[in-house]
């Protein structure tokens, strides 16, 4: 027998009688509040910038990342940064990106995480190798919990996906929190809200 058969035979022999599969909780009834989400993102080290239109991003970014900063953006209609169209570009060439500006699919209220996946990512390395990361998420695309989040992610719809919750961080040196471990040194979340009262 090959390894595979040896292992599967041993597992089949030793596994106990079938135990039932538990049922997951029902979807949340309450809506996820934009304010609650913003507080959560700030609590995990992110910065939230409320915007009422995507064009608001331009001046914010231009002020903070003036030339010769290298910007890469996936927002189609903004006059900002380079587009990456060729996914085969070696990830190493992105090492000099100062700011990557990407569209997030949705946010999760309970932990401040934002989902991004291969359908909206020009290169998987981009949100990790850039010095600073900015994500755009709509306040209408927020879910209360991770259970709700996975309900939105039907299996087999993405090749790669990631929840990003705050900037990269470490506390490996005597438990002192340091922001900017290997990945982005900061995370800015542009929270798009069309509610005029905000």
């Amino acid at each position: 027998m090959n390894n595979r058969q040896v292992i599967l035979t041993a597992v089949a022999r030793n596994q106990p009688a079938t135990r039932p599969m538990p049922t997951l909780p029902e979807p949340s009834i309450e809506r996820a509040s934009a304010d609650g989400f913003a507080q959560r993102v700030e609590a995990i080290g992110g910065t939230v910038v409320p915007i009422s239109a995507l064009t608001d991003i331009v001046s914010y970014v231009q002020t903070r990342f003036p030339p010769p900063a290298r910007l890469v953006s996936t927002l189609p209609d903004l006059p900002l940064g380079e587009r990456l169209s060729d996914p085969l570009v070696p990830g190493h060439t992105l090492e000099t990106v100062d700011l990557a500006l990407l569209m997030g699919s949705f946010g999760v209220l309970e932990n401040g995480a934002i989902w991004l996946d291969s359908r909206h990512l020009p290169h998987r390395a981009l949100p990790f190798i850039c010095q600073h990361l900015a994500l755009v998420v709509s306040s209408r695309a927020l879910v209360p919990t991770l259970h709700d989040a996975y309900r939105r992610l039907s299996p087999d719809t993405f090749d790669y996906g990631v929840f990003i919750a705050g900037p990269s961080k470490t506390a490996d040196i005597e438990q002192s929190l340091v922001i900017g471990a290997h990945g982005p040194r900061s995370l800015t979340v542009f929270l798009l809200t069309t509610d005029p009262s905000r």
Binding site: G112, A113, D117, L146
Partner: peptide
């Protein structure tokens, strides 16, 4: 896949008290 909702809610909270790790990466292809 939906079971990840249960485990990722528990993992980082139990480990360090964070609500989730900074990156939870899903590799499919």
């Amino acid at each position: 896949q939906e079971h990840l909702g249960v485990f990722l809610r528990l993992l980082a909270r139990s480990a360090t008290g964070q609500p989730i790790t900074t990156y939870s990466s899903h590799f499919v292809r």
